[in-house]
Nucleic acid binder design. Structure first.
Lengths: 155, 155
DNA sequence: GATGCGCCCTAATATAATTAGGACAATATC
DNA sequence: GATATTGTCCTAATTATATTAGGGCGCATC
């Protein structure tokens, strides 16, 4: 009846922390660092994945390397009745690298990767007749995507 | 003199695509899928990392698994003269999972992971005397973080 | 005080990564 | 126009790692 099933212990949290830093750390090294054997670590990772705690092993790519020299945050307020169309459109445009549906006046807040101001204009044009948009160009990134604190668990 | 050094070819892009999907794909499998030998793949990955194209191998963690049931997007406009203090403060608060410095009226746009509305309030309080903030609670995530299109390169 | 469950271990086996050495084509050099 | 040079790739041998198989131990349950 309890949620023991979904609880993370200290070892799990240590493993997550190590993997966030470097997902290629070998089981052997992980095991050594948390004080378990590698089969035990392997089993824990399997269960963390199975439970969805670890959503994916992935690589972080520098957008610049792909020619995306510009990023923008776009607030998007669909015109009446256009919400679903707009959402679909956003999802289909691959340059949107992130999109959240939020409370408040703006309905969506999205991140856009583009190669030039021209491209930015082109993409916003595709939405212009279905939503009001408000765009802020990113000048710097004080914090790049990072996970929430892995430290002590409240519950 | 050219930027050949910094160019990605089709094989590199295929490798990146495979790794974004699953960073644990073995060299052997990668090699089979792109039609190279594993030492060649290994060497290409090494260079992609060296050049900074691949910024990191990492795991994506579900914030919910850590008890972070709430996310918010906060627009932050530091009061006159407080810009640097505010930026430093944001960086130090681990619950900020992302922060961009942007053009326009709001200076920063940040993502906040919290466990409760109370926590949200607590964190915003720490900034309240140094900046104006405007908060939008995330209701849904139509697009979760994804890289820009890896397809054809312009230059 | 037996039974089952969760979690861990070691040792053996299977699989993958790395290293070493060299082929080959394209490009620059004399 | 012959000859280095560079970059990229290969195979085969070696080393390192992951996985599997089998079992121990503590703890809660009945």
């Amino acid at each position: 009846m309890s949620e023991k099933n979904e609880m993370l212990d200290d070892l799990d949290r240590s493993l997550l922390e190590l993997l966030v830093r470097d997902a290629r750390t070998s089981l052997k090294d992980l095991a050594a660092q948390v004080g378990l054997s590698s089969p035990s670590v392997s089993e824990r990772l399997r269960r963390l994945e199975e439970r969805g705690v670890i959503r994916a092993f992935t690589v972080e790519i520098d957008p610049l390397a792909l020619g995306y020299t510009l990023q923008a945050i776009v607030r998007i307020k669909p015109l009446p009745g256009k919400l679903h169309i707009v959402q679909k459109l956003i999802e289909e445009i691959a340059e949107f690298g992130e999109c959240d549906k939020v409370t408040g006046d703006d309905c969506f807040i999205a991140r856009l990767f583009v190669r030039s101001i021209g491209d930015l204009d082109g993409i916003l044009d595709r939405i212009a007749d279905k939503a009001e948009t408000s765009t802020a160009i990113i000048k710097a990134q004080p914090i790049r995507r990072r996970p929430p604190p892995l430290g002590a668990q409240s519950e």
